[in-house]
Nucleic acid binder design. Structure first.
Lengths: 336, 336
DNA sequence: CTGAAAGCGCTTACAG
DNA sequence: CTGAAAGCGCTTACAG
């Protein structure tokens, strides 16, 4: 039996529900928008008319007068990097949950140096009420430009330059301290670390937090770039320079994984001979053998908060910039 | 120096550029929209006025008359599953590339049985011109409902029930055949497989393609559910029942990884003793030790095509349903 | 509490 | 090729 081909139904307008309810368009509009000063009998007449006609407000018409798009953008760093981003899912889950609850559309965009102007232009077109900027580059001028033009914006990390902008932040030092405490509680004597790039705030803070907590003036470390390869290289240097090491903190799971493969190749058992702690609790942490003990940022909660902060900023453009600090947790698995 | 607080600039309207150019609003509108029948001198006068005033069309006003939102939805399966989805990044990259090129917003939504009606309602609100439905559940009534109401929709896989709907598809049999051919070319004599859930089309087709190509009537297999754990369990059964096995095809990378850990625990070297081929080329393929040889679907290209098909369908509502079939490739790494 | 009217900023037949 | 006018479907002062 062929599918019956229904004609696209003519959409019903407010005009028609007003007529059906025997009231003016203005009154009908008021009950649609939940204005409380409407007579109860009239309200229910209108509500019945809405139900009977199957009325759905035309959002374009509404936007035209309210000047609200009921949509915000989630701007991700580089399209090319999307496939490898371990936090994408958690990020989307957190933001979409709160935008969804508020009936606000979440529109996804990516931005790099080449597409920045397009993105900026799009933001000012009026189809978006605000924007969540995820990890903009350190010298990206967009955050400042948006703040100055008073376009609602929130950032997923501390701004590179001092800027009065709403953002969330994970306490990197506290996270690294967790790793240090754990390794110490394991009675490890010769602890080393593979750091992230030290010119980045994150890389620097993780080393600082780890070192401060360990309070070991002789802490041996080598700088990595968060990649698996740099973890392997770093681990190789470290075992050779310090054959007696019995614990390593890698500032990313990927580096921890690189370290693990070197350790295995050299016959050092993990965690028996060497305890390994990573950072991120990304997908690879579970994929490691043994599964990685690692520091986890509450990415999803941070993303949800980001959305909440943005929505609040849109409704209260003159409220001062806010900042929410999140504390990481240690996920105990088998590598340490 | 404090940031100067600029007043939000009053947006300039088409009325003003028309006045600045000394033409009617209608004419100004025509040049904005690239209508070709405008006198050249007038066109450039208007263009200058646009540049001078910094005019940007109000999308709500435009949408109100064109009845186009210039936005499409990407509807992902379950919000809860987002963090573990290995294809999310590739999917977003493919779709956002083509929607971005067309100036169409990509709005992200998730849907499960509980939120289906909300999503459906949102689609019919008029803020969306079409929808990409990613792997809807086998008994999800939404695809059919959308097709019947003539709402532009495309699917990321073959529809569960026969339905005239535009979709893309990866040739699962051909993908599995690639794995079989490769293992055979390696001169493996005792080949086994861990399948996906056989009640799903994907699980079934991968086994069928593998078995048909191998043409081994005695092919040993055990059914898994695509998870790491089921891969480990399956591998255990298989080695015990067939101690002489020298190759295994797992219908997912996760299962392959589970198999790998069992093999290692039992002292079987990979690939020397046992060759292992996975399916998906997800992030774990690279995280495996050794890195996995695996079958890869061109997810990003499929996603881009999905967006293209949807945009075409929106512009040509009466064109017949289309389908694009994609052929997987084999990614050679070290496990086989 | 309610309605008539203005207005949001465009596009598009329709005349000319 | 161009313009005057109608119309898209709402919301919101303003009177009453």
């Amino acid at each position: 039996m062929p599918t019956p081909r229904r004609a696209p139904l003519k959409r019903v307008t407010l005009e028609e529900v007003a007529r059906a309810a025997g009231v003016s368009r203005a009154t009908a509009s008021r009950v649609v928008n939940g204005v409380t000063t409407v007579d109860e009998a009239i309200r229910s007449a209108v509500q019945r008319a809405i139900a009977d006609t199957g009325y759905v407000p035309n959002p374009a018409a509404r936007s035209l007068v309210t000047r609200r798009a009921e949509a915000v953008a989630l701007v991700l760093p580089e399209r090319a990097r999307l496939p490898g981003d371990p936090f994408l899912g958690r990020l989307l889950r957190g933001t979409s949950r709160v935008t969804g609850d508020h009936g606000v559309h979440l529109v996804l965009m990516t931005m790099d140096a080449n597409t920045r102007d397009q993105v900026a232009a799009d933001l000012h077109r009026g189809r978006l009420d605000g924007v969540i900027l995820v990890h903009p580059g350190e010298r990206d001028p967009l955050p400042r430009r948006l703040v100055e033009s008073r376009f609602p914006v929130v950032l997923s990390a501390r701004p590179a330059e001092p800027l009065a902008v709403t953002h969330v932040e994970a306490d990197q030092r506290a996270g690294a301290a967790l790793a240090a405490d754990h390794l110490r509680s394991l009675r490890r004597r010769r602890i080393v670390t593979i750091t992230g790039p030290l010119h980045t705030a994150v890389g620097h803070d993780r080393l600082a937090g780890f070192r401060d907590t360990l309070a070991d003036p002789d802490l041996a470390w080598v700088e990595g770039d968060f990649s698996r390869e740099s973890g392997a290289v770093g681990m190789t240097h470290l075992v050779e320079a310090h054959p007696d090491l019995d614990a390593v903190f890698a500032a990313s799971d990927l580096m921890a994984q690189g370290a693990l493969s070197v350790l295995r190749a050299r016959g050092r058992a993990v965690p028996a001979d060497v305890a390994v702690v990573g950072f991120d609790d990304s997908g690879v942490a579970l994929a490691c053998d043994p599964p990685l003990t690692t520091v986890r940022e509450p990415v999803e909660e941070m993303a949800a908060e980001l959305a909440r902060l943005l929505l609040h900023h849109i409704d209260h453009p003159d409220s001062p910039p806010a900042r929410t600090l999140f504390t990481p947790t240690l996920v105990h698995r088998h590598s340490a």
